[in-house]
């Protein structure tokens, strides 16, 4: 077996090993990679940035812990942006393991918002985020398609109470908020087919502005909806989250993760090239 045959039929464990080493090293060594912001992420940022204080943003945290690495940074970036702009946020979690993570995210962001911070040259004073006044966390209900349809009639149909058992009518920020008509936009962060339900049953039926935050794998599939303006923005994968953090001037997990991803991709490209070199050189030898 010559070197080219070896290159073509390398044991996959060498691939795994090199990937582990590269990921570990780039994670441990702190550095930043420059982020280029694309139009589909910019449109989400600009939309939220131009909302007036008091307007409501609906954030659907529809992912499980397995997609946490890609979607949690998006959740943090978007939610913190909303709270800094004094917008009100309604949060739901339509995946089974979502509520725990959503609650954790809200509590962590609340702590972060107590501090004065400067973003894009603007100083935002720290303030306390209050449940019921600044945000309402509705929790989880099964059969997400029905929940999305039900919320189009009235949020109280699938969610008579919030996650903590408080009737929605007793929550100050939900007074007069019936359904999607009172919401400025919906941002769905999802890793599965809940996204399709939001597009078909949500936006397709109730025509509210919808933006998506998806895993990298799913991102490519939703460009048709962006093109047909069924969604007004799309954040795909860790790169999408990093772009939002870049725009918000709020570096976090996504920007940290990008350095690992860039080098991991280079490793994969290296192996692809190696395999192809081995293949072509092997074919040339066969022809000889």
């Amino acid at each position: 077996m010559n070197i080219f045959d070896r290159m073509m039929s390398l044991d996959r464990r060498w691939v795994f090993l090199l990937l582990v080493v590269v990921c570990a090293v780039t994670y441990i060594v702190p550095f930043q990679v420059p982020i280029r912001v694309e139009g589909e992420v910019r449109s989400i940022y600009d939309f939220i940035d131009t909302l007036k204080p008091g307007e409501i943003v609906f954030i659907a945290i529809d992912y499980d812990p397995n997609a946490l690495a890609e979607l949690h940074p998006m959740c943090y970036a978007v939610m913190e942006h909303c709270f800094r702009k004094n917008l009100k946020v309604i949060v739901t979690a339509l995946s089974q393991n979502g509520p725990g993570m959503a609650e954790q995210a809200i509590l962590n962001i609340s702590d972060s918002l107590m501090l004065d911070r400067e973003y894009n040259g603007v100083l935002y004073e720290g303030r306390e985020i209050r449940n019921g006044e600044d945000y309402a966390f509705l929790g989880y209900k099964p059969y997400f398609a029905l929940v999305i349809l039900g919320m189009g009639q009235n949020f109280r149909i699938p969610f008579p109470t919030d996650y903590y058992g408080t009737p929605l009518d007793s929550i100050p920020m939900m007074q007069g908020v019936q359904n999607y008509d009172q919401v400025a936009c919906v941002v769905d962060l999802s890793a599965g087919n809940i996204t399709d339900a939001w597009i078909s049953y949500g936006q397709g039926r109730f025509y509210f502005p919808l933006a998506l935050g998806l895993t990298g794998v799913m991102g490519a599939d939703y460009y048709p909806y962006l093109n047909s303006r069924q969604i007004f923005g799309l954040m795909a994968g860790l790169y999408g989250a990093a772009q939002y953090e870049e725009m918000a001037n709020n570096p976090g997990l996504a920007k940290d993760g990008m350095r690992v991803q860039v080098y991991a991709h280079l490793v994969i490209i290296l192996f692809i090239l190696m395999g192809n070199i081995g293949y072509f050189m092997g074919r040339r030898d066969e022809k000889k």
């Binding site: 490793v267 192996f271 395999g275 293949y279």
Partner: peptide, 27 residues
């Protein structure tokens, strides 16, 4: 729960690398 599920999803990175190495040949 969260670390276990995240770990399983992280396996995909390695499977993608090995699948890409096997499949992306200019045949």
């Amino acid at each position: 729960m969260i670390p276990i599920q995240s770990t399983m999803f992280a396996l995909l990175a390695f499977f993608i690398a090995s699948a890409a190495y096997r499949a992306f040949r200019a045949r």
